[in-house]
Design a protein around this nucleic acid. Structure first.
Lengths: 116, 116
DNA sequence: CAAATGTACATTGACAGGCGATGTATCTTG
DNA sequence: CAAGATACATCGCCTGTCAATGTACATTTG
């Protein structure tokens, strides 16, 4: 794993919700999509993924139904709820804010002397 | 606090190092600086702060010396080491990468149908 | 002068999220 | 039928954050 998992922490829920706003999906597929989009530089571990789903369910952010696959392993399809959409919007706002803030905190004001 | 601490998690070390690249300082002051820069929207809790210093010390990223204050509480001044500067540079790279990646993952491609 | 407030550092225990390891069941392919 | 892919699930450990609490000294204020 090239991206530290602490960079991910707290953002898994948001990332999952982001996928679910686009279309209903199931855990395994979401994981694959994330791997693809990130060019394998970062992968939600399964334990993390399923833990996140449990959290999201408990929070009322997603609902699920079992797919009726005739073949292959059964799939648990997740659907984002209205609450989930709200939560996602909130997450995104917070995320943007946090990024702006941290960026500000770690930017080097090169050449700027800070004496006073 | 308006910024969730999980958004911060894993970045405290980097934020502290950022301050120390500018000048030597001590815990209390760094905390105040962060509060100021963030307009009080986010504050490192003391336990977090001192925990981070211990980590940074153990990792050889900072060294410290006691200030010789004649008056007031004694201060533990921290200085960033060469290893600390390297670590900081690394953190920043990773941070930028992670931000770019997560942003990509949560961006809504509105109007773009994703059927295939 | 006593109490309150501010400066400054420090530790402890609880909690939560991520993860390695492991387990289940099914289907496909050689 | 063995191996590998698909798919879900849980347990226990580790680590970072935080509330609570404690120390000590200085200044302000009534």
């Amino acid at each position: 794993m090239s991206i530290a998992s602490d960079m991910l922490r707290g953002n898994t829920d948001m990332i999952i919700l982001a996928h679910l706003t686009q279309r209903e999906s199931y855990g395994y597929e979401i994981n694959k999509l994330i791997q693809e989009k990130s060019e394998n530089r970062f992968e939600l571990k399964e334990a993390t993924l399923y833990g996140a789903f449990r959290r999201l369910e408990e929070a009322g952010c997603v609902s699920f139904y079992w797919g009726d696959e005739r073949t292959g392993a059964r799939r648990r399809y997740y659907r984002i709820t209205p609450e989930g959409r709200e939560a996602f919007a909130r997450y995104r706002r917070e995320w943007a804010e946090a990024v702006a803030l941290i960026t500000k905190l770690i930017v080097q004001e090169n050449g700027l002397k800070e004496e006073r």
